[in-house]
Every structure is written in structure tokens, then in C-alpha cells.
């Protein structure tokens, strides 16, 4: 029997793999620097938590997590994708703070800062839940691989490299950018649902920048527009966190030291190797 510790770790690994793959689809493959990716994850988590807490079966709740995140993501994308220059990045960064404000203050829905405890498990056994997340993340992996090698995926990448040139070749770049974000936010919402059934709890801190830094680390260190890179990025982060768990003795320092280590590595990668380990493109 595998040790409980590794079961937890692997479950997280698979959940984060879905998040990073979907992040990569928009950011690495389509060149849309969506700094609010965790907002979609959080929306998924809240959706699935609220539905299952109200007795909706988990499979409907999980699907709804993806759909709600996708609908909100698509509406936002449809409005913001046309913004020029850095403004898309800026608006998506702003979404993080809007999500925090809404989740803290819409108390009748989210219970504010108290969060939603007691979210039921999908599967009692942690081991089988790990297998379940594994199956879903393998499906996501296959899907993103297939998509990025399809004609649609090539158009995403063309938009990333040169949007004007893609339009000049007869492609409706607006449509494809919104499509990329719609797919990306759907997957993120599903991952959010999986996350909330893993920890049985969600509160506004899911939107915090600290959470975003984690997936940014995974994506950038692993490498943009590389599926191999995303797998490696998620793996490296968990390896690093487990390593730090043993190295840092004083418990109150684990949080900040872990955060600083992540940020320092991320900083060095951004300065000296912005493509990341397996990355193919500069952003």
C-alpha cells in the first residue's frame, strides 16, 4: 500500500497538472497572458462546493464547475480580448482582486471570509480519489496535446507569434482567442472542483496572489508552450515544497520561506532563461 503522504501529493499533482495545462493553453500556446487564471479555478471550486453542499450529485456539480467557469471566462474574454497592448494582462490581474472582493462580501452565497467547510468527498478512499484525478488529468493531457497539434491549435500558436499576420491569412483571430480562453477556463473550473473535493473546504484565499504564483512557477519554470514542461513544472514545485518541509525547522517560517524560494527561482528563470526548461517560446 502506498503511503498516505504520497497519495495526497499525487492527487495534488494531478489536479495542478490540469490547472497548468489549461493555463499553458491560453498563455503559452495562444500568447494570452491571463493573470486571472486562478479566478476560474476558484469559480469552479465555489460552484462545485455550493452545489454538492446543497445535495446535487458530484458529477453534475463537477461538470457545472467547468461550465460556470467557462461561461464567466468566455463573457469576460469576449469583452477584454480586443484590448490593446498590456491592457488584457492588466484587466485579468484586476479580476483577481474583484474575485477576492466578491467572495468576501457576497456573504449570503459564499459565507465571506469564513469560507465553505464540509464539502463532501467525491470518493471516500483517498487512493481511489487519486486514481480519479489521475484519469481526469490524463484526459486533459491527451486533449491539450491533441488540440495543440490540430489546425485550431496551430492557429492559436500563430496568433501568439503574430496576430496581425494570422488575421491577414484569413483567420478570425478574435474568435480563436475567445475559444482558447473558453477551453482554458473550462478545464480550470473542473480542476477547481477537484480541488475543493480534495480539501473539503474553500474560502476567498483561493484567489490570493500566492496561489497564482504557484501556477506561474509551474508554467514558467517548466516552459511555455510545452506539455512536457508543464508536467515537469508541476513535479518540480512539489519536489521543492517537500524538500523545504524537511529543511525548514521553524514551522512559522515554512510559509514565507517556501514562498521566497519559489519566487527567487522564478525570478532567476525570468531573468536568465525566460523560456523555462522545456519551453519553446518567449513571451
Amino acid at each position: 500500500m502506498i503511503h498516505e503522504f504520497f497519495i495526497q501529493d499525487f492527487t495534488w499533482f494531478f489536479i495542478y497538472l490540469i490547472i497548468v495545462l489549461s493555463f499553458n493553453l491560453a498563455f503559452g500556446f495562444t500568447g494570452m497572458v491571463n493573470l486571472g487564471h486562478m479566478v476560474s479555478v476558484g469559480i469552479g471550486a465555489y460552484t462545485s462546493a455550493l452545489l454538492t453542499l446543497n445535495g446535487v450529485p458530484w458529477y453534475i456539480a463537477l461538470l457545472a464547475a467547468g461550465i460556470i467557469a467557462c461561461v464567466i471566462g468566455t463573457i469576460i474574454a469576449a469583452i477584454t480580448v480586443r484590448l490593446k497592448g498590456d491592457y488584457f494582462q492588466i484587466v485579468t490581474l484586476g479580476l483577481i482582486f474583484i474575485a477576492i472582493a466578491v467572495s468576501r462580501n457576497w456573504i449570503s452565497l459564499t459565507r465571506g471570509a469564513l469560507g465553505l467547510p464540509g464539502v463532501p468527498d467525491i470518493i471516500r478512499s483517498n487512493f481511489y480519489y487519486m486514481l480519479f484525478t489521475m484519469v481526469l488529468s490524463l484526459m486533459a493531457l491527451w486533449f491539450v496535446y491533441w488540440l495543440t497539434n490540430s489546425e485550431t491549435g496551430k492557429i492559436f500558436q500563430a496568433i501568439r507569434d503574430d496576430e496581425t499576420a494570422t488575421a491577414i491569412l484569413g483567420k478570425n483571430t478574435y474568435f480563436y482567442k475567445v475559444l482558447s480562453l473558453a477551453i482554458s477556463t473550462f478545464l480550470a473550473g473542473i480542476a477547481g472542483g477537484l480541488m475543493v473535493h480534495q480539501i473539503n473546504f474553500v474560502d476567498p484565499s483561493i484567489f490570493d496572489l500566492e496561489q497564482f504564483i504557484i501556477i506561474l512557477f509551474m508554467l514558467i519554470v517548466g516552459g511555455l508552450a510545452s506539455i512536457k514542461g508543464s508536467i515537469l513544472g508541476v513535479f518540480l514545485l512539489f519536489a521543492l515544497i517537500d524538500l523545504l518541509r524537511f529543511l525548514v525547522v521553524r514551522p512559522e517560517l515554512i510559509g514565507p520561506v517556501r514562498q521566497m524560494a519559489l519566487l527567487l527561482i522564478l525570478l532567476l528563470v525570468l531573468i536568465y532563461r525566460p523560456k523555462g526548461i522545456f519551453g519553446k517560446v518567449d513571451i
Binding site: 500558436q157 503574430d162 508552450a225
Partner: peptide
Amino acid sequence: LTKVFRNM
């Protein structure tokens, strides 16, 4: 100024 898809 040429516009090719550099990473492709």
C-alpha cells in the same frame, strides 16, 4: 517588416 510565425 516581415511577419512570419517565428516559433513555428
